[in-house]
Design a protein around this nucleic acid. Structure first.
Lengths: 158, 158
DNA sequence: GTCCGTTTACTCGGATATGCGTTGTCCGAGTTGCGCTGG
DNA sequence: CCAGCGCAACTCGGACAACGCATATCCGAGTAAACGGAC
């Protein structure tokens, strides 16, 4: 069970976008994080499809958050990148074999699937409790109060 | 983020083993669930490596749970199959690019990694709260009280 | 009848191919700012 | 000096290969029961 590495990229990009004044193009985002330009663009497309970011074309185009950072949760980003399919998918093997479960018993989901579903729900709830704004505030605490000032300077300089 | 399908198989096998009287060989387990013999054997090897099941060779060999079903959690099985590596692994991209985070700021884990880690911890705690015995009890409720009786009959018959 | 050796069938374990998904890259369509030209 | 037009550069979006891992399989090593024969 491995999460896509693009999730980390997307979250960091959202934190950056929350502190930018205007649109930020994908190559700029990639350069700032030292990652692949083209591959990051692919992930940003997923964010755009889910309506988390808005893309503007043209000479001074780029990506902008569609909502305030306080209203974007980490779960939103994860679902946009990884998709909404649950990690565990029940194949109903209890209906196979010489002693298959009766159709009446299968009206309720099997216990294994219920346990997995509950765990995934807990995971989602935890991620839903953290917003991009929270992460941005954490960066300020860890890296110093002038971090985003220098970020904006770099954005306007290049 | 997709979980291995072998996890479902392994959990169902553990539930079955918790109700068996003696060792159950892998081909029997596979036949009962209508799944691949050889591939299931591979997953059972993982359970054996982690000490969840004990294997006995020879003519009447097979797999037996090493602990009572009340002391085996779903998390144990998931970790045995999927491995103990966390789904999210931080690549520390905050240290890249033109404005890298200072080494002092990196003494603490980055906020993204902390959020992911907390979510995964919640997921683990949820899975840790369900035991193989709980699942077996759920099967009794869903499929009827005589389910395991018929299971034992089938095991001794074939 | 009992004990022992051999056979035999059955088990697990690791080493070995294959298909699909994530990773990574590229090029084309579209849009906007900028510069030039004409009035 | 100002307005209109063409250009060019920059942007995003989807289509195109390559690697890695999960999937699926096979065969060999080992073991314990069962059988046959000798005592």
């Amino acid at each position: 069970m491995k999460m896509s590495g693009g999730v980390e990229w997307a979250i960091h990009c959202c934190v950056l976008l929350s502190q930018a004044d205007g649109p930020v193009p994908a190559p700029r985002l990639a350069e700032f994080h030292g990652i692949s330009r083209t591959y990051l663009a692919k992930h940003l497309q997923h964010l755009s499809r889910d309506g988390l970011v808005s893309s503007t074309e043209g000479r001074v185009g780029g990506y902008v958050l569609t909502r305030p950072a306080e209203q974007i949760t980490v779960l939103d980003v994860v679902l946009a990148i990884e998709g909404r399919e649950p990690a565990f998918r029940c194949t109903e093997i209890r209906q196979n074999g010489p002693l298959p479960a009766s159709p009446a018993a299968c009206k309720r989901a099997c216990g294994v699937a219920r346990a997995m579903h509950a765990a995934e729900q807990a995971w989602r709830e935890s991620l839903r409790g953290v917003t991009i704004a929270d992460l941005a505030a954490g960066v300020l605490v860890d890296a110093g109060p002038d971090t985003f000032v220098r970020l904006r300077e770099w954005l306007s300089a290049s």
